[in-house]
Simulated scan of single mutants.
Amino acid sequence: MIAALALLAAAAAPTAAPVAVAPSAPVAMAQPDAATLAAARALMKISDLQGQMKALGPSMANAAEQQMRGMFTEARMPDGLQAQMASAMKSYLDSMDRMFTPELIDQMATIYARHFTAAELNHITAMMADPVMVHFRETTPQLMGELMPAMMQAMRPHQKALQAQLMTIIRDWIQTHPEDKAKLRSPLSS
């Protein structure tokens, strides 16, 4: 998400002076140096991933509820079940603050630091501070709330086709490997 935001920032801020940053070569699981890690931590801070996820939570909950409703005839979930689902989703969303521990944020920073140079991370951080990007981050949860239903609707036929294909693959596998049926969490009927 941050990389996509950075690309959008580059396109949205044409008045900013161009900064030449040499692209970094991919490094396979190398530990980043202190300067690169500090730059990645600064990016994590300005990105406010915790706030972004918390703001996106209601949109995610609505999308999940719509998907669950699709499991019932006329997309109508029984009232008691809907109340229980809403309560579980609210509890999950309320717990998001606890998920973004300093350790998780540091782990995320380390991952970014392995893929970008300190100069690149500093450049992305500077772009994220641009008023257009601040507005973009503030607006993203609302946009996602409006975009998710359309995306879910567009994906639904493809999801059903994929689900059917995967079920066929599993059934075929079980037919030729019956010993693996016991390994399924929800054994297939037949």
Rank of each mutant, 00 (worst) to 15 (best):
M1R: 14
I2D: 07
I2A: 13
I2V: 10
A3N: 14
L5R: 03
L7V: 15
L8I: 15
A11K: 10
A12Q: 06
A13T: 15
A16Q: 07
A16M: 12
A17E: 15
P23L: 03
S24P: 12
A35R: 02
A40G: 02
R41L: 04
R41Q: 10
S47N: 07
S47P: 01
M53I: 13
A55S: 10
A55G: 13
G57M: 02
P58S: 03
P58N: 01
M60S: 03
A63P: 00
A64N: 13
A64M: 08
E65H: 06
Q66R: 10
Q67I: 05
M68K: 03
M71V: 09
E74S: 07
E74R: 07
E74G: 05
M77F: 02
M77T: 07
D79S: 06
Q82K: 13
A83M: 06
A83R: 04
A88L: 10
L93D: 03
D94E: 14
M96S: 05
M96H: 01
R98E: 12
R98H: 10
M99Y: 09
F100I: 05
I105N: 03
I105C: 05
Q107K: 12
Q107P: 08
M108P: 01
M108Q: 14
A109P: 01
T110I: 08
T110S: 08
I111Q: 10
I111L: 11
R114C: 10
H115L: 05
F116M: 02
A118M: 13
A119M: 03
E120Y: 00
H123R: 11
I124W: 00
I124T: 02
M127K: 00
D130E: 15
P131V: 00
E138D: 09
T139L: 13
P141D: 04
Q142G: 14
Q142F: 06
E146P: 00
L147Q: 12
M148H: 13
A150D: 11
Q153L: 12
Q153I: 06
A154W: 09
H158P: 03
Q159G: 04
K160N: 09
A161D: 15
L162M: 14
Q163R: 11
T168K: 15
I170T: 12
R171I: 05
D172I: 01
P178A: 09
E179C: 08
D180T: 14
K183G: 07
L184N: 11
S189I: 13
S190M: 09
S190C: 08
